[in-house]
Write a protein that binds this DNA or RNA. Sequence first.
DNA 1: TCGTAGACTTGGAAAAATTTTG
DNA 2: CAAAATTTTTCCAAGTCTACGA
Length: 684
Amino acid sequence: MTVKETKKGKTSKAESSSDDDVTLSRKTKKETKKPAPKKEDAKVKKEKEPEEDTMIKWWEEGTQHPGGQHWLTLEHNGVLFPPEYVPHGLPCHYKMEDGKLKEIKMEPDEEEVCTMFAVMREQTRPPSDYYINPIFRKNFFMDWLQILNSNPERNMKRFGSKQHPIRSLEKVNFDRIWEWHLEQKEIKKALTKEQKLQIKKEKDEAEQLYKYCIWDGKKQPVGNFRIEPPGLFRGRGKHPLMGKLKRRVKPEDITINIGPGAKVPEAPAGHKWKEVRTDNMVTWLANWTENVNGQGKYVMLAASSMVKGKSDHKKFENARKLGQMIDSIREKYREGWKSPDVGIQQRSVAMYFIDFLALRCGHEKGEDEAETFGACSLKCEHINLEEERDHVVFDFLGKDSIRYYNKVKVESKVWELLRKFVKGKTPNSDLFDRLIPTHLNSYLKELMPGLSAKVFRTYNASWTLDKEFFDDPVSDSISLPEKLVYFNAANTKVAILCNHQKSVGKGFQKAMTVLEDRLKMLKNLYSRLEDVKELSKKHKNNWQAKVDEQWEKDEHEQQQAWLEQYGTEEEKTAYKEKRAGKKPSKPKTTTATTTTKSSSSKPKEPEKKKSDPKPKTKREKKQMESDSDSDIPLAKKKKASKSAKGDDSGSDVPKKKSKKTKLEKRKAFESSEEDEPMKKKSKK
DNA sequence: TCGTAGACTTGGAAAAATTTTG
DNA sequence: CAAAATTTTTCCAAGTCTACGA
């Protein structure tokens, strides 16, 4: 199918960009609910203050500072530090040679890190299965051990040996601390409402100072003013450093960026900042270097702030601009497929992937990172051309180690080129060995100022959403829930395009079972009602009695069936007795309370009536036990196909270069080919 | 021609808040 | 009211991309 028409009106929306959606829905929700609830405590609900003065229309132009400066004046109060560690004083235990557990008392520094780990005990399922992950455990243990052995004198005094007695993580028993953790949770839960409120109030108060800054004289919300607390690094996928201690950030680690002449926030008593500077070419208020990966962390403004808004705006304007010339760009890369230059061929195919499949650019990753891929960094083993002619099966781990699996039909020419690129190469060599992101982007920049690989994602995501709305406009007459379904369906298209996926949570299987169960029940009820309807037609005169009888019979049969399958002996007996000494209960033929509320839940079944009968019979609610089998329906993929139409016109092909001197990093990782983060294990 | 540091965007998971159920 | 379900917010790792430096 050709897609020539790609421009849409000015209605392109944010689509997957969570921020935008969130903002939108939040607003809507708030307004909707406002009229309804009257709050007994007027103060609980903090309504939006007018704040008209800050409502400047920055998108309308003119508000730009020259030379790439982001601000002229900037005031803020610095950052908020997490609370100091409060020791609980509890020991852990260590399994000795004789199998006995020996109590190990800990100093606060030892205990703090120990507790970080101990408390993760239940994190045993993907994607957060850190507690049982060997890499995580090893890294944590190394760092903990380092602390345990950091003070030989201390150890000598306590254990009569410079080396701490703990040598192996497997022999450490954290039960006591785990119990403490559970207790703490209970305590927290048991707090009275007033206490909870009080705590929250105190927290809010502590935040007040840091929540806003004054940016060019305007009050603006700060995003992450809270310094990240120490913890165990939770790298995703097969991150080699997961589990390492992310140490506590001190004022001495922090650089403050603030306007000229503005009052410099004071560092906590007894401390000082690493540096205080004034740099209006950047937007951050503070920064520090995190120790695990050595990367910078920044305190910046919130998504709702002006700067972020501007930049977001620019992003979409940019994508819109791409929309104006997407046709010619598509022509260009199609032209490139025919180039005699392999570099250009590769670049052109990569562009096709980025455009057509919305793949990310894909930069090279380092030794200390999980191995993930994108368009430019694909390996030969990530594509399979054998399945079907002109089809490519992609299978690789993308950002966050989320699997990209997709079988697509591609242009013949592309398929042929791919075959050529793969030829004679080992599976783990680069598919596009002559292409690097820098070159791709600088080429894109030539095609259109401001163009880079990611702009295609933004553009195509917006285009997709737009197309949904255009092809199948919302009808005014449908209900709000229906509109929601409509909107979500469109959004799902975008999610599929961009390969956005969420892992199924712990409760998913259970929730699904309940839902299926309920569906089954409703269907059953429906058919019974149908039967009864027939019956009542047949017995015009004494239909009531007939219906009662039939109903009771059904009920009994079902109950029997249920007991047969799930019931315990006691339950069976109890039922028998109950039935013996009881007269038929009255059926609820005509329900007066048919709340015809559209099911709404899963869009799969066209449910009609839902006369939700909360069965009076002892419908055991423990059906969660059943735990039927099966796999989780997960990310099915279909591909919206849009294609670029092409022909010839491209002329001068930009210079190609690209060498690629990637040091072959042989990953000693086990090459377990399948390792889906998706298995579902029911735990007792 | 790289390689990298620095700055900023992305986006999934966990936590918190809110609403619905029982 | 408490527990469960659902929605919103927060958190922060993991990307992108450009400018610099040699």
